[in-house]
């Protein structure tokens, strides 16, 4: 049996839900509710867009070759030997 989910339950757990941190049954129950609920659906879209916006602001990492070379040289100096 899928646990019953209402708007209140979604409201209380939506971050855990969006982060995929709930158990499978609860994830599925909330999925099902959100798909058909005109109240929760726009709310979840809003929060999803917010999370995507945060993700898109990740620090860009420029050219890593100099850093990689530098780390390799430091390791060699510290006595690292490749197997």
């Amino acid at each position: 049996m899928m646990p019953m989910t209402d708007c209140d339950a979604v409201m209380r757990q939506f971050w855990d839900y969006l982060d995929g941190e709930l158990n499978e049954a609860t994830m599925a129950a909330i999925d099902a509710h959100v798909q058909m609920c005109s109240h929760c659906n726009p709310h979840i879209q809003f929060e999803r867009a917010f999370k995507a916006a945060l993700r898109s602001a990740r620090e860009p990492v420029a050219e890593l070759t100099p850093l990689r070379d530098r780390v390799r040289a430091a390791l060699a100096a510290a006595g690292y030997e490749a197997p």
């Binding site: 409201m11 209380r12 757990q13 939506f14 971050w15 726009p42 709310h43 879209q45 809003f46 929060e47 867009a49 917010f50 995507a52 916006a53």
Partner: peptide, 25 residues
């Protein structure tokens, strides 16, 4: 965490009727 989650819900409830529902896009 529960209070924080509800506070975030309240933010959406306020933003949505102000035409800010798609603001993060």
């Amino acid at each position: 965490p529960e209070l924080e989650t509800l506070a975030a819900t309240a933010l959406f409830a306020a933003a949505s009727p102000q035409g800010l529902g798609d603001v993060f896009e």
